[in-house]
């Protein structure tokens, strides 16, 4: 066990391991590319839908059920399916990562919008704000903390799951995990796993910092 940890530390810190087209630095960048693009695409799809459902109050049933459907959908199965249907391209990776992130963002956005005090919305209407103004000036600012929670959760899950890119022969940190499993090289597998975990935690902390920056100067209750 101790021997393994020593080997792992050596693997993680050797400079040869970090450089080059197969090095850790390249793999981290690839991993980030898949994760960032997938999360952005998911946000572009999910945020308007979540806001619309929250603003109009219609389709809440759909949102709740979509969430549990999304949680139940096995990502490995989805990526395999798209891969078999579409052949060798990077699409299966993005399709399954986006499918993973969309439900999380939609439900949290909807939850944030639903938690806005109806009296506040009434008051906004009372002082003459129109529907769109209420959405942008009242509802979204109040719902933003929960919306950001959704984006954060989705990002962490996407970073953690982007290892599947390697499953369908692409890069990213999953390369180490799958190659290591195939070569029975536990050190490499563990190295990859540790790097993914660190990246996921770092992404979570970065978005947490961003959220705090966005809400600087707001009363603590609104956070």
């Amino acid at each position: 066990m101790l021997e393994l940890l020593k080997n792992l530390a050596a693997w993680l810190t050797s400079s040869a391991q970090w450089s080059g087209p197969e090095g850790i630095a390249t793999r981290v960048l690839e991993h980030l590319e898949y994760s960032v693009l997938a999360t952005l695409a998911a946000a572009v799809i999910a945020l308007p839908v979540g806001l619309l459902i929250g603003h109009t109050g219609r389709g809440a049933f759909l949102a709740v059920n979509l969430a549990s459907f999304g949680r139940a959908l096995p990502t490995v199965g989805l990526v395999t399916l798209v891969f078999l249907a579409g052949g060798l391209s990077v699409w299966p990776v993005y399709v399954s990562l986006v499918a993973l992130a969309v439900p999380v963002i939609i439900t949290n956005t909807y939850a944030g919008m639903a938690a806005v005090d109806p009296e506040v919305k009434d008051a906004a209407k009372g002082v003459g704000l129109r529907g769109r103004q209420i959405l942008w000036q009242v509802e979204i600012p109040l719902a933003l903390p929960l919306i950001m929670t959704g984006v954060r959760l989705a990002t962490v899950q996407v970073v953690a799951t982007a290892t599947i890119a390697a499953y369908v022969s692409f890069g990213g940190l999953g390369r180490y995990v799958f190659d290591g499993l195939a070569q029975r090289d536990l050190v490499q597998v563990l190295g990859g796993a540790v790097l993914v975990a660190v990246l996921a935690v770092a992404a979570d902390l970065a978005l947490g910092g961003l959220t705090r920056l966005l809400f600087r100067g707001r009363p603590a209750a609104a956070r």
Binding site: T163, G174, L181, A193, V194, A197, A200, V201
Partner: peptide, 15 residues
């Protein structure tokens, strides 16, 4: 615990 990828979790437990 939740931020550790599920696959990584299984692998980390292997030893």
């Amino acid at each position: 615990l939740y931020t550790i990828p599920s696959l990584a979790f299984f692998v980390l437990l292997l030893p």
